[in-house]
Nucleic acid binder design. Structure first.
Length: 903
RNA sequence: GCGAGAGUGGUGGAAUUGGUAGACACGCUAGAUUUAGGAUCUAGUGCUGCAAGGCGUGGGGGUUCGAGUCCCCCCUCUCGUACCA
């Protein structure tokens, strides 16, 4: 070996780390500050790792290695979120036990992760499907149950009669099953629900204390969707029942000219008059067939029918009609609204469509033309709002709301109310491959199993085919379903639903802390030391559900004393998606027209896409031109039917002619597009260190960015340069320039500039600029005539979190013992950056016209700096031509002369 | 529609938070070396101009000695969300 060959060194060091347990976390050492850095653990799919995984994993790995060198006790674990649909679907198809599939996939993932050199403590590996783990998932469910946070309800699910199974939302595409394209209908089934709504306020409030991206917090806030307003009770004419509505605009009660019930509202049947019975039932039937999605898709025009009944507006005694319409959702508020068409856009549209009266009660707009919803404007004053009990006329919206609520409460017609969009969590799946519920039914009543019965294992089955009834395949296993109550010996039936994939991922961060603990999910002592997670990195796709569910469980565990922190994840960072390489596309119609961007959008007929390679093109200003040398290189034609054709003739037509519009865009990686990058291939060609380095060098971690193979080559070249700085290619010896020389001032300056930049950038997750600082150092070092070992050692420490294999190798070649990972991070000394001179840019009227260099001691001396600046020929010219009116001197920053033209 | 974020060379991206725009890298050009190279080294590379210079951070205005950065208006793109009363 002589030149840099990652394949020769990477595996060697991975073995070394494994053997020496280099990254094992020592729980007993409490003298050091702790740092818990966590990755969102993967679902081990059959497809293996994609390049998005190593992005976040490398970032946390750098942080983990860095913090360890900084003297922290670091917890950096990995595991598998291994329950889930794909393994079960594969089982249905092939009969392979999902456990087998899962184990194979995990082996693949583990091998891939190890090949990237991540510094995990593999002794803490966990797997959500292992009984030792899901025992505690089940245990947590029992705690939820005992606290009254788990209940059963009939909830509509995606039922597919042809497949005889219930489908997850993602298995339903356009109302048809993804597999087979069979129709899917909404059908109520008994389901387990978790009362996350009971924690809505705390989930909202505690967001404040988290160091999370503002966008994610905002998404969670929107998801929780808190609204404050009032509940108002409307009497019905000639009936005893009342309709209660929730409104955020109680101030507009005088403008309520009709009411609307959701079609599913329980009162619909009661209040529909005989004459309207037929149309109402028909409408209710159609609404039932529409899924929630359909309803919102078709929100262009409003539909609804009159029930024939009237309600009384409590404010003014007006008799107002009660309608039903599917723009009112049963799942929000009370499933009924008071309609104020003057000041609500949806109500306005509905009123227009059905010719219902529109009453203005807030001035400032023209309710004949549109609903006036402004509440902040100074013009927005209540009008037409006086009744027997209360008058709001002349008040602003805020005051009017308060006055109205006061009156509603004192007169018993309503009360202040807070509602949330957040709905309870549908917690059961009709599947085999999930955690069984520790619940039995005795005489048809649910009863929790005692904790001593856990884990409740999945039975072995012969077939993974759906039961056909919508129940899980577990329902078909009689000997499992039929059991006895362990406490009384009475016959009992087991719950046949299983838990959703979210369950296992809701608390895994706790299990890493104490993976073998037998008396609970985690021991108190270790939990108190390690929690909260200091840094959590993962994809933004989990911004809402996973993070909200995990926070919810954590708060429950906090309430029952299992954990000591209110929130699980102190700091959160989302890595941005990695897109495929930029694609250059021309669009051609069947009659040989080429379309531009707008044309492509508008075009509905068949299109042939022509994929060009970057080397085909030269960009001049804003337009692409053909590179004349590359005309023979084939382009790929993708025909309307999806077939592909390589053509080396295609571009010749354009020789010397202007090119049509070429779209330059990157797309999400997908199998169908054929732009997926496999990390294994990259490792094979360039090594793990190059892959790690490239993924960090691409750009800011949080940002979406396109992959580029030549970018990988760039960092690979850098690693080779590092190698050659240390090792002579011709004989594999150490570079003879290396020795125990005393470091020169300039060398120390270069080193400490790198130390400063890399340290600061790692702390703020700016890995791309940290790497560029390391490159600058190497570019410098190549010019040196002597290479002091001490300087090179510090450099290796700086590079080691990014490219650990290479650094371990060079570290040992320099004659050091042990792993570089166990050494201290270099300390930055600002004294090393002091220059002997200071250079100022000199501006005239804000434009740089020259620079001056003064001795460092004179840098803050205004007279000296301005004096030499004025003498600078390129500056003097401008001073001579005009009249100097002002001198700006900002010490250590800039000099600027303001010069008026003419003498 | 609403909410959030972003627009900088041919490309990915820098810019100490108001102080020399384009660091670092890719690509490209020229040269050197090599049997050859997708290897390595040297120099150059925002646009425009022979040059002096001029122009340049999506567009238009403004504040300032000075604006990629601050303020106002507009355009485009990405992500999230969707009849939430």
């Amino acid at each position: 070996m002589s030149e840099y060959k990652p394949s020769d060194i990477e595996y060697k060091w991975q073995q070394y780390w494994d053997k020496h347990k280099t990254f094992k976390t020592d729980d007993s050492d409490r003298s050091k500050p702790k740092y818990y850095v966590l990755d969102m653990f993967p679902y081990p799919s059959g497809a293996g790792l994609h390049v998005g995984h190593p992005e976040g994993y490398t970032a946390t790995d750098i942080i983990a290695r860095y913090k360890r060198m900084k003297g922290f006790n670091v917890l950096h674990p990995m595991g598998w979120d291994a329950f889930g649909l794909p393994a079960e679907q594969y089982a249905v198809k092939t009969g392979t036990h999902p456990r087998t599939t899962t184990e194979n996939n995990i082996d693949g993932f583990r091998r891939q992760l190890k090949s990237l050199g991540f510094a995990y403590d593999w002794d803490r590996e966990i797997n959500t499907t292992s009984p030792d783990y899901f025992k505690w998932t089940q245990w947590i469910f029992l705690q939820l149950y005992n606290k009254g946070l788990a209940y059963q309800a009939d909830v509509a699910v995606n039922w597919c009669p042809e497949l005889g199974t219930v489908l997850a939302n993602e298995e339903v595409i356009d109302g048809k099953s993804e597999v087979g394209g069979f129709p899917v209908i909404r059908r109520p089934m008994r389901q387990w629900m978790l009362k996350i709504t009971a924690y809505a306020e705390r989930l909202l409030e505690d967001l404040e204390e988290l160091e999370w991206p503002e966008s994610i917090k905002e998404m969670q806030r929107n998801w929780i969707g808190k609204s404050t307003g009032a509940t108002i009770h409307f009497d019905l004419e000639n009936k005893k029942d009342q309709i209660s509505v929730f409104t955020t605009r109680p101030d507009t009660l005088f403008g309520a000219t009709y009411m609307v019930l959701a079609p599913e509202h329980p009162l619909v049947e009661k209040i529909t008059v005989p004459a309207q019975q037929t149309v109402v039932s028909a409408y209710v039937e159609t609404a039932k067939k529409k899924s929630d999605l359909d309803r919102t898709d078709l929100n262009k025009h409003k539909t609804g029918v009159f029930t024939g009944s009237y309600a009384i507006n409590p404010a003014n005694g007006a008799r107002i009609p009660v309608w039903i319409a599917d723009y009112v959702l049963i799942s929000y508020g009370s499933g009924a609204i008071m309609a104020v068409p003057g000041h609500d856009e949806r109500d306005w549209e509905f009123a227009r469509a059905f010719d219902l009266p529109i009453q203005e009660v807030v001035s400032g707009g023209n309710v004949e033309k549109a609903a006036y919803t402004d509440t902040d404007s100074a013009d927005a004053k209540l009008v037409n709002s006086s009744g027997e009990g209360v008058s709001l006329d002349g008040l602003g919206v805020t005051d009017a709301k308060a006055r109205m609520i006061e009156w509603l409460e004192s007169s018993g017609k309503g009360e202040a109310t807070v509602t949330y969009k957040l709905r309870d969590w549908l917690f059961s799946r009709q599947r085999y491959w999930g955690e069984p519920f520790p619940i039995i039914y005795v005489d048809g009543k649910p009863k929790p199993l005692p904790a001593t019965e856990l884990p409740l294992l999945l039975p072995e089955v012969e077939s993974y085919q759906p039961s056909g009834t919508g129940e899980s395949p577990l329902a078909t296993i009689k000997e499992w379903v039929e059991t006895t109550d362990p406490e009384t010996g009475e016959p009992a039936r087991r719950e046949t639903n299983t838990m959703p994939q979210w369950a296992g991922s809701c608390w895994y961060y706790l299990r890493y802390i104490d993976p073998d603990y037998e008396h609970g999910p985690v021991s108190k002592d270790k939990e108190a030391y390690w929690m909260p997670v200091d840094l959590y990195v993962g994809g933004a796709e989990h911004a809402v559900l996973h993070l909200l569910y995990a926070r919810f469980w954590h708060k429950v565990l906090y309430d029952i004393g299992v954990v000591s922190t209110k929130e699980p994840f102190r700091q959160l960072v989302n890595q941005g998606m990695i897109l495929g390489e930029t694609e250059y596309t021309m669009y051609k119609t069947d009659d040989n027209q080429f379309l531009d961007a707008a044309g492509v959008d508008a075009w509905e007929g068949p299109l042939t896409r022509i994929k060009l390679k970057p080397e085909h093109l030269v960009k001049k200003q804003d337009v692409f031109e053909l590179n004349p040398e590359e005309l023979k290189k084939p382009v790929t034609l993708i025909h309307p039917d999806g077939s592909r054709e390589e053509s080396s003739e295609f571009l010749k037509v354009f020789a010397g002619k202007p090119l049509p519009y070429i779209e330059a865009r990157s797309f999400k990686m997908s199998k169908s597009r054929g732009n997926v990058i496999n990390p294994d291939d990259v490792v094979k060609a360039y090594g793990a260190d190059a892959l790690r380095l490239y993924e960090m060098f691409m750009g800011p971690l949080e940002q979406v960015k396109p992959w580029s193979m030549s970018g990988v080559e760039g960092v690979y070249r850098f690693l080779k340069r590092v190698w050659r700085l240390f090792i002579q290619e011709k004989n594999d010896d150490l570079n003879p320039l290396i020795g125990n020389h005393e470091a020169e001032t300039a060398q120390l300056k270069a080193l400490h500039e790198a130390i400063k930049k890399v340290t600061e950038d790692i702390e703020s997750f700016k890995f791309n600029t940290a790497i560029s600082a390391l490159m600058i150092f190497v570019n410098d070092a190549y010019k040196w005539e002597k290479l002091p070992k001490s300087v090179l050692k510090d450099f290796l420490k700086l590079l080691s979190p990014f490219a650990p294999h290479l650094c371990e190798e060079l570290w040992s070649r320099l004659g050091n013992e042990g792993s570089v990972a166990h050494h201290e991070w270099p300390l930055f000394d600002p004294g090393r950056l002091i220059d002997e001179t200071k250079t100022y840019a000199v501006q005239v009227n804000g434009k740089v016209r020259g620079e001056v260099t003064v001795a460092a001691g004179d840098a803050e001396n205004k007279e000296i700096v301005l004096g030499s600046a004025k003498a600078e020929p390129s500056v003097k010219r401008y001073l001579d031509e005009g009249q100097l009116v002002k001198e700006i001197f900002v010490p250590n920053r800039i000099v600027n002369f303001v010069v008026k033209p003419g003498k």
